[in-house]
Amino acid sequence: MNPTTAAPPVPAGQRSVQYDAFHAARARTDLVARLYAAAMGEDYPVEVAASSSCDWPLLGLMTARLKMRPGQLLVDAGCGTGGIGLWLARALALRLEGFDLSPVAIAHAADRRSRFGLPAERAAFRVAELENTGLPDASAHGIVCVDAFGGAADRSAALRELGRVLAPGGRLVMTRAARQGAAPAWTEQARAAGLTVEHVDERPAEPALWERLYQLWIAHADELRSELGEAQAQNMLREAHQVLPKLPGRRAVLLTLRRPATSPAGPCAADTMTRPGHQPDERTPK
């Protein structure tokens, strides 16, 4: 599911339950993955298997925009089942910290480490919110956030939190969307978080991708009900019917934000990594 195109955000606890149920249902069948693959065609990265708009062009663009060096720390914000962060960490020889609202998704992400050849010492996952990551100041050399930012209860607070975690000179690459012709406040939002806008890369094929996917969900409604259960099928079909009319005129981008190299972000902890599986204060989404 794609939080950036779904209904307005609901409380974190309810979102966690919703996403837990989705990830648990998806683990029982490959139907959802097959529908994503059908919508993306050759651009579907099978190994990543993300429930998002992450395709091969986006993976390549994020790799280029991050400009990270081997051994540095990448944070996957709203990581879901971890495929995006794990793929990038393996491809770029990085360390990885991923977090998500859903404990079920986090459990699946941890289970997938071995498929990417990454030990627990290289890839840690935790339950956390975008507004409260539990990560140290200036600890990440790079952050990716794919189709998760729209689900934040407070987007301004979420961006400030991600900016706090980013080390001087580090980059946050995130998918964002706006209406065609609108003047998004990305520069002002970035400045409020102590960041600067480095690149705005258009993703002209993204709206059509969601249109194909949602049409497939509707066409396969009976299979969704049979394999995922009535509740999950209804959630997906509701999203499809709500979002489809809004897709014309949608502008999708990959936004690259950078913390200035001279930023007074506090002591730089970018060469440290918290213990795998450790959650400061044992916080869970509220």
Rank of each mutant, 00 (worst) to 15 (best):
C268R: 15
R225T: 03
P103G: 03
Q279C: 13
F99Y: 13
P119D: 03
T175G: 07
A124L: 01
T133C: 02
R28D: 06
E227Q: 12
N132E: 12
K67S: 12
G169E: 12
S52R: 03
T196M: 09
K246W: 06
A27N: 12
L237D: 14
L35R: 02
L228V: 05
C54N: 15
V75Q: 01
L35K: 02
M40Q: 12
M62N: 03
A49R: 07
L73M: 01
C79D: 10
L94A: 02
A89Q: 00
F22H: 09
I218G: 13
M236W: 15
E223A: 11
Q234I: 07
R225P: 00
M40S: 07
T262V: 09
Y19W: 10
C268A: 08
A205S: 13
P45M: 04
Y44E: 06
G78L: 04
P245H: 13
L213K: 07
L195D: 04
A240W: 05
A167W: 01
H220R: 13
D147C: 05
R191H: 09
Y44D: 13
Y19L: 15
R179N: 07
Q242K: 08
A89D: 00
G229H: 06
A265C: 07
G266I: 02
A93S: 11
M174D: 05
G134P: 14
D30G: 12
P70H: 04
D222S: 06
L213I: 12
D281C: 14
R212D: 11
T256L: 13
A208I: 07
A240S: 08
L166T: 01
D222E: 14
P280N: 04
E198Q: 10
E121R: 14
Q232R: 11
A190T: 00
R275E: 09
E188K: 13
D147M: 03
E198K: 08
W217H: 15
I84P: 07
P136N: 00
A221L: 10
A183D: 07
E282V: 06
P45C: 09
W217E: 05
G82Y: 04
L254T: 12
V146A: 08
V127I: 02
H241W: 12
A192G: 03
W186K: 04
P3C: 06
S52F: 00
L73P: 01
T274L: 05
R283M: 02
A167F: 02
D222Q: 14
L135N: 01
G266E: 01
A252M: 10
R95I: 03
A107P: 11
A12H: 08
R126C: 03
A39F: 10
T63L: 06
D100K: 05
P119I: 01
Q279H: 15
L101A: 08
D147L: 04
T256A: 12
Y36P: 11
A77F: 00
P57T: 04
R259T: 05
I84T: 08
G151V: 07
A190M: 02
D222P: 09
A153W: 00
A123T: 01
R26T: 04
Y44G: 05
P245V: 15
P207A: 15
E97P: 03
A153E: 07
L66C: 06
K67R: 06
A109Q: 06
A6K: 14
L59Y: 10
R112E: 11
R126Y: 01
L96V: 02
R203E: 08
